[in-house]
Amino acid sequence: MTTRKEWPLWEVFIRSRDGLHHKHAGSLHAPDAELAIQNARDLYTRRSEGVSIWVVPSARITASEPADKDSLFDPAASKVYRHPTFYTIPEEVTNI
């Protein structure tokens, strides 16, 4: 077994064109942020998939617990009044 240290893991986010959000593309290993961007260019934009790249050390991401899914997200399920279709508007009224 090798005792060498692995390059850290980075998460890569790509903006596919201006006007859109950066979106998670995947991850890669790189020794630092600069090379992470270079590697992301080679790995995730070989076919003009992006105009901007974010890289974030994977270890710095805090994620919600799958076990908390219910307590976090269930409350929204019963709040149908947050959607426009909840409200009744007379048929003869338009543009609303």
Binding site: R4, P31, D32
Partner: peptide
Amino acid sequence: REAALAHA
């Protein structure tokens, strides 16, 4: 790989 880590 080692040199890149050391440089970083």
